[in-house]
Simulated assay, not measured.
Amino acid sequence: MPYEPPTHTVERSLRATTGAKIIAGVDEVGRGAWAGPVSVCAAITGLRRPPDGLTDSKLLTPKRRNELAEVLDGWVTAHALGHASPEEIDDLGMTAALRLAAVRALEALPVRPDAVILDGKHDYLGGPWKVRTVVKGDQSCIAVAAASVLAKVRRDTMMGELVGVHADFAFADNAGYPSPAHRTALEEYGPTAYHRVSWSYMDALPRWRHLKKVRSTPEAAALEAGGQLGFDF
């Protein structure tokens, strides 16, 4: 399906209006999963021409994502990933967990960004960074698209490495997201240490619902209601 390639338009705008010189694109993956961390990548790309085919990771085949990730690893000026664990998601709620993962990613960069382009409509990061939110930024902004691909490939790899420990959950195929095999394994074996046990999917597991944690905030419960259907925002 044809798509418009991402550009440096937002980066140029931030440079012109805020004086920012170092700008990081930030994107997350794993928000809608039942298991595994929520992962955030912060990528700094400068204003160089991007690799061919770069776009939102969800528009790419797994093979093409992996190929691009290899190229991006050496092409970006700098990048870093931050993660919030399932336990942190359960304890803090999704918005706070996203911020925690994003802060970890930004603070792991070798240089501190002057500004951040954040994919989506809501600023879950806040100060002290100057933040510009961009809806579908992973399709329109080069730095965010790069972060999208790097975050997705890294998290998928992490989840795939669990296959030897929890083979029945098919994490190598579903990366912790809802799927028939994942649901069947949950019904049979219950949640693992990698599952978010405050989420409402636990209510559909009669043998295991006693393990459900009370969601820490109403706002987090509302966010998770989309996650149980497998949405990846």
Results as ranks from 00 to 15, higher is better:
143 A>K: 07
178 P>R: 02
190 G>P: 03
93 G>Y: 06
122 H>Y: 14
142 I>T: 13
194 Y>N: 01
129 W>T: 02
153 V>R: 02
109 L>R: 09
198 S>T: 11
100 L>H: 02
93 G>M: 01
88 E>Q: 11
183 R>H: 13
204 A>L: 13
173 D>L: 03
94 M>K: 04
87 E>W: 02
108 A>M: 10
101 A>F: 07
163 V>W: 06
89 I>E: 01
194 Y>V: 00
103 V>Y: 05
171 F>L: 05
196 R>E: 01
183 R>S: 10
172 A>D: 15
144 V>T: 09
95 T>F: 00
186 L>S: 08
122 H>N: 10
162 L>H: 01
202 M>F: 08
152 K>M: 07
96 A>C: 06
134 V>H: 05
112 R>H: 13
143 A>M: 10
187 E>R: 12
194 Y>H: 15
188 E>T: 15
93 G>Q: 03
127 G>A: 12
208 W>F: 15
172 A>E: 12
119 D>Y: 02
151 A>K: 05
197 V>A: 08
160 G>D: 03
180 P>F: 13
113 P>M: 10
157 T>F: 09
155 R>V: 02
116 V>S: 07
143 A>C: 15
103 V>H: 10
140 S>P: 01
93 G>S: 06
128 P>T: 11
184 T>H: 11
203 D>H: 15
196 R>T: 06
202 M>H: 10
165 V>N: 10
143 A>E: 03
212 K>Q: 14
136 K>T: 02
108 A>T: 04
203 D>R: 13
101 A>K: 04
207 R>G: 13
171 F>Y: 12
208 W>C: 14
180 P>T: 08
112 R>F: 09
195 H>D: 00
123 D>L: 09
208 W>E: 09
205 L>T: 12
166 H>E: 11
124 Y>H: 12
123 D>E: 07
105 A>Y: 08
207 R>Q: 14
197 V>W: 04
187 E>M: 11
91 D>V: 09
195 H>V: 06
154 R>C: 03
189 Y>D: 12
121 K>G: 12
159 M>F: 00
162 L>T: 05
174 N>K: 01
157 T>C: 10
140 S>C: 12
110 P>E: 15
184 T>C: 04
171 F>Q: 05
104 R>L: 11
95 T>S: 15
201 Y>N: 06
112 R>L: 14
140 S>T: 15
112 R>D: 11
164 G>W: 06
177 Y>N: 04
216 S>G: 09
159 M>P: 00
108 A>H: 10
122 H>G: 02
204 A>I: 03
170 A>V: 05
149 V>N: 05
109 L>H: 09
158 M>G: 01
215 R>H: 12
150 L>E: 03
110 P>H: 12
149 V>L: 10
121 K>D: 13
179 S>A: 15
137 G>L: 08
96 A>K: 11
121 K>P: 01
163 V>L: 14
186 L>K: 02
120 G>I: 09
